[in-house]
Design a protein around this nucleic acid. Structure first.
Length: 586
RNA sequence: GCGUCCGUAGCUCAACCGGAUAGAGCACUCGCCUUCUAAGCGAGCGGUUGCAGGUUCGAGUCCUGCCGGACGCGCCA
């Protein structure tokens, strides 16, 4: 199962070799001029430059070699030395049938599967998720699915923020409010397993405590002491902390699942904590630690650097672990548990320096291979003013509220379309939810992750043009068509490509593999989104140009039905990789 | 100050190792529902790719300088 582009690259590379030219110049790409050809090769231009020869003459030689191959309808020399390739209808028909019969819908596998950890989401105990978590979650989930689909063994890890000073703050805050709690007692317990606080309590108390600790030094010291005692293993604090973690995690999982985001692991910062002491000793033994201004650091600057990268702080002058320490220990933890060949950190681009420090330290310590750690940075989601998104009041918008806003819009639009009357309330709600999630995710994943984008709910939910709802609409249309075909007793049959719209649709289907391979290589889900949109649009043109159920003859109806079915399946596959589900009706 | 990223149509974004006529969507104009969902399809309008040089047969893409913007730069995460 090979896509046309790869197959053509092989064929044309062989022709280059036959002509005595470097085979790697035979790279074939989709044509820039669809009016002239299906595919093209620009290698003759590069070959001519290297050999100081006439590009047209070289290209002519290649054309002569390729021309007899019956897979082509035409092979032509154009412009300064482009080789234009037009495939025969028979070649395209063959390919369309192959994709239709392929359980992977034309998508390939990576030749050498790896063990990969995707670190994304980054939720924290007691903190409600806000819009900042949206990108990390959506992009990470998509990369996890993509890597898994390409054949890697993948663990998605939420990397739960369940440790550190915030926990001490919460213990103090809860203790002040409920001074009679059993958990506050010294000694070994036993302590209740029932949580004395709800998530709402935690979310209420945390910001207050954090603010107070900034100005009230006595309060801050109590929180620090509580943090130290918790980390030292004080049983009552541990038991209380476990309640915080459980209450938070349950609520967060519910929120993530509303976005179809599911983690394989909820390993927290607390899981890495027990490894820190040993790790520090090991770094010491390896001679990597240095005492500087009272702190223990690893110098990570390199000779070629354009600017001196600050050292990684492993132990602060107060003797505590920093977030870089935890990240480093987490690498050790993952190595021990899974021995991953690659760890992807899907985290805001602004933390690029931090990860560079951690990665360099990890390599120096031998915890990871040179190419085993990657920061997958992304830009911010901005408000209309171009600054990171805030509510009208200037606060952060909770993720939950954002999703509700999107669902309200979706309900409104579905009612306008008269769908409310057709569906049961449950189906209606389900569809509204899917439409809202598709709108949000497609708006996010449609852009390259590295660039920031402006959040504009009206535009995302406009249900027109290049949006999530448009893609769902195309999928739903096909589902409806197939239901009708079923009722009328029409079956799909062999694809025979005749019409231009059928050619274009086949070429669009074939491009799935190239899009996925590129998305994988560049860790860029927007290329999947781009493909899905192209496919949907190409189908829509086909739908308008080629009657399916009322086709002129039974053979062409069967052929078009199969094209419609495989388009739906591939669209569904691509959307699933983006984390988007399609409803039955809309 | 140093460093990273960015500047493409009125707006939001593409452009596959440097290749043909820089592409989509929105907005605007026009056409298309007595055939399968018009949340659609077709056509049109819209560009000195921030500015100035350079390399090349060929530059949005590579190099240099400048202008403008975002972000980061040791004990928060």
């Amino acid at each position: 199962m090979t896509d046309l582009k790869s197959r053509l690259t092989t064929v044309v590379s062989d022709a280059f070799a036959q002509a005595g030219l470097p085979a790697e110049l035979g790279r074939v790409t989709a044509s820039d001029r669809p009016d002239l050809a299906d595919f093209q090769c620009n290698g003759a231009l590069a070959a001519a430059k290297a050999a100081k020869a006439n590009p047209r003459a070289l290209a002519e030689e290649i054309v002569a070699i390729l021309k007899p191959d019956p897979m082509f309808a035409a092979v032509e020399l154009a412009g300064p030395g482009f080789i234009n390739l037009v495939l025969s209808d028979a070649t395209l028909s063959l390919r369309a049938n192959a994709i239709a019969e392929d359980p992977r819908l034309g998508a390939g596998l990576e030749p050498a599967p790896r063990r990969v950890v995707v670190d994304y989401g980054g939720p924290n105990v007691a903190k409600p998720m806000h819009v900042g978590h949206l990108r990390a979650s959506i992009i990470g989930e998509s990369l996890k699915r993509l890597f898994r689909f390409r054949g890697d063994e993948v663990w998605g890890d939420a990397h739960f923020g369940d440790w550190g000073f915030q926990m001490g703050l919460l213990i103090v805050a809860v203790g002040d409010e409920q001074p009679d709690l059993d958990f506050l007692a010294d000694g070994d317990g036993p302590f209740p397993s029932e949580s004395p606080v709800s998530l709402a309590d935690l979310e209420r108390l945390y910001p207050l405590a954090a603010a107070r600790a900034k100005t009230d030094l006595e309060y801050r010291d109590r929180a620090r002491k509580a943090t130290a005692e918790l980390q030292g293993g004080r049983p009552g604090y541990r038991a209380l902390w476990r309640c915080f973690v459980e209450v938070s995690r349950t609520a967060l999982e519910r929120e993530f699942s509303a976005l179809d985001i599911e983690f394989d692991l909820w390993n927290g910062e607390s899981d890495a904590d027990p490894l820190i002491a040993g790790m520090v000793a090991e770094l010491e033994a390896k001679g990597l630690l240095e005492l500087d201004q009272g702190a223990r650091i690893v110098r990570v600057a390199k000779d070629g650097d354009k600017r001196e990268l600050p050292p990684l702080l492993v132990v602060s002058s107060e003797g505590s672990a920093m977030y870089g320490t935890t990240d480093l220990a987490t690498i050790v933890d993952r190595r021990n548990r899974f021995d991953p060949e690659l760890i992807l950190y899907v985290v805001d681009q602004r933390q690029a320096d931090h990860f560079e420090q951690v990665f360099r330290a990890a390599r120096l310590a031998g915890y990871a291979a040179e190419d085993g750690l990657e920061h997958i940075g992304f830009g911010t989601m901005n408000g209309p003013d171009g600054k990171p998104f805030k509510t009208r009041e200037g606060g952060v918008l909770k993720l939950h509220d954002l999703i509700e806003m999107a669902k309200d819009k979706a309900r409104e639009r579905l009612k306008d379309a008269g769908l409310g009357a057709e569906l049961t309330e449950q189906d209606f709600e389900d569809t509204a939810h899917k439409v809202a999630v598709a709108a949000l995710k497609f708006a996010d994943l449609g852009n390259f992750r590295g660039t920031s984008y402006v959040f504009d709910l009206d535009r995302f939910m406009s249900f027109e043009g290049k949006t999530g709802p448009y893609l769902l609409y195309q999928a739903v249309r096909i589902k409806s068509l197939l239901r009708k075909a079923d009722v009328e007793g029409h079956a799909a049959g062999e694809v025979v490509v005749v019409e231009p719209a059928e050619r274009d649709l086949t070429l669009a289907l074939d491009a799935y593999e190239a899009a996925l391979a590129e998305a994988y290589a560049r860790r860029a889900p927007n290329l999947i989104a781009e493909h899905a949109y192209r496919l949907a649009q190409t189908f829509s043109k086909f739908y308008a140009a080629c009657p399916i159920l009322v086709a002129a003859d039974a053979k062409s109806r069967a052929s078009r039905l199969r094209l419609a079915k495989v388009t739906l399946d591939q669209l569904d596959s691509a959307l699933r990789l983006l984390g988007i589900e399609t409803p039955e009706r809309m």
